[in-house]
Amino acid sequence: MSTLKFIFLLPVAALLLFPRVCGAQSPNVGRPLTPEEIKKIDITVAPDGKGLPPGSGSVSAGAAVYAKSCQSCHGAQGAGKPQDQLTGGLGTLASAKPVKTPASYWPVATTLFDYIRRAMPITSPQSLSNDEVYAVTAYILSIDGIVPADAVLDAKSLPRVKMPNRDGFISWWPKPPR
């Protein structure tokens, strides 16, 4: 372990070894959260699929959700305008005009599900059912052939979707790679 990393981890290590010492300044008045409460508030979805809810959605069901809730901002087939372009741009990242879309740029498909579920549609966020979110995610990914036209996505299949730019990111934390 490098010295730098060791120094960064010191407070973490101290807390693990001496929680009482480190917490000595605290009145400790947090209210314990129950597992039921956590289930209601925890909408985090990880790239490995942890946190994905039950339910499923097909490309065809997603086309209907898209037409109703997304198309007025993101254009037909995710072509964009007036808001962000969602499809296309594949193979442009190394070109003189990179086009960054979920299809061309985003490394994992779980991000698309997570973002739609927490933030879209912008006029009524968090209004779609889990089935609808799976479905519209499948529809958007089908436009560029990232999933087949008969795909059905769920908690098992979504994390397995291989995004075109899966290996396109290099982590700069805690420091740049050598």
Partner: peptide, 19 residues
Amino acid sequence: VDARDETSHYTELMPGGKA
């Protein structure tokens, strides 16, 4: 978690296509 704002946004695309 690769949140939207740490993948789609605020990442630095370099010449050659890696970010």
